[in-house]
């Protein structure tokens, strides 16, 4: 039973990481109907900026509790600028182009960001500095540490914060209007370019937080880390229903749980024929099953029969 609880904790922690990144995907998708494939790389840049700024500040002798928020702020600003730039350069000119055109520019931007990061930060894996004494706690036999608790709470808090922004503020109303109908929103006096830019910047700020959290949890940063994370988070967003904030959270947590329970129990379920090597197969089968039953994801709205 201890092992089972531990797997649940593992899944929730991993799931929160996915959820944090998935929120960024879903924000942009909700407004523009566009998969921002470069989002995983923005997370990576976030991790790298956090790494550099933290190391610099700690090097100046700054106390960790001051360096951490400063570095977070710096990283968020950096990523927001990056997100703004990506949207201006790679997406805005293609807003009326065929649907797949921005997909290609997104892939191009990903490759550029990866290789830029490789030039700036080098090819090696960087150890991420440990900021706080990472105390561990035992909960019904399962072990969890402070960083993991912080990640879980941050993911929930960010989702709640975004819900408030989207549903309770003027900006959120403008966002929803743009999502509903760009032309009508424009006629109603919404500056759609501004709204879309802000959405990208918000999404990128989330990516910055996610990058810092992921690096702090696993203790490393590398220019290639965005790829797999982005892919998993994208899967999570689709599982929950892309474009839906609660869906991203739910999808992330579910995917985390599926993965950890899958890795832990496939072997027993299949009598040893399959093992944790089929963890991703298991996850994709669940995804396919969900989408066959609910073609728009768990919490996705039933878009009218149009793509």
């Amino acid at each position: 039973m201890e092992i089972f609880f531990q797997q649940i904790v593992n899944g929730l922690v991993q799931g929160s990481v996915y959820a944090l990144v998935a929120l960024g995907y879903t924000m942009v998708y909700g407004i523009l109907g566009l998969i921002n494939f470069a989002h995983g790389e923005v997370v990576m840049i976030g991790a790298m900026l956090a790494l550099s700024s933290l190391n610099a500040m700690l090097g100046w002798g700054m106390p960790p509790l001051l360096a951490l928020p400063l570095s977070l702020a710096f990283t968020m600003l950096g990523c927001m600028a990056l997100g703004y730039g990506i949207e201006r350069i790679a997406y805005r000119p293609l807003r009326h182009a065929p649907r797949l055109a921005p997909l290609i520019t997104a892939i191009g931007v990903s490759i550029v960001l990866q290789n830029l990061a490789m030039m700036v930060w080098g090819r090696q894996y960087h150890a991420f500095p440990q900021m706080i004494a990472n105390n561990t706690h035992t909960l019904a036999g399962a072990i969890i540490n402070d960083v993991q608790i912080i990640i879980f709470i941050t993911a929930l808090a960010i989702m709640a914060g975004l819900m408030v922004v989207v549903h309770r503020t003027r900006l959120g109303r403008a966002m929803r209007a743009v999502a509903e109908d760009q032309h009508a929103a424009q006629l109603m006096g919404v500056d759609i370019n501004r709204v879309i830019s802000i959405t990208f910047m918000l999404g990128s700020a989330l990516a910055a937080v996610a990058g810092l959290m992921v690096s702090a949890n696993y203790g490393l940063a590398h220019y290639y880390m965005g790829f797999l994370l982005g892919l998993k988070a994208f899967t999570a967003a689709v599982l929950g229903g892309i474009g839906n904030l609660r869906g991203a959270m739910l999808g992330g947590l579910l995917l985390g749980l599926i993965e950890s329970l899958g890795a832990g129990y496939i072997g027993d379920l299949t009598g040893g024929f399959m093992g944790s090597n089929y963890q991703d197969v298991f996850a994709f089968f669940v995804l396919i099953a969900v989408l066959v039953l609910r073609p728009s994801g768990l919490l996705g709205e039933r878009l009218a029969e149009r793509a």
């Binding site: 000119p93 293609l94 182009a97 520019t105 892939i107 191009g108 931007v109 490759i111 290789n115 030039m119």
Partner: peptide, 23 residues
Amino acid sequence: DPESLRMLLFGGALVVMMLYRPA
């Protein structure tokens, strides 16, 4: 590094070509 520059230019080329010929 020639290698990083090579992939950088490749990514850049994808973006530029798509911006000029969206279809």
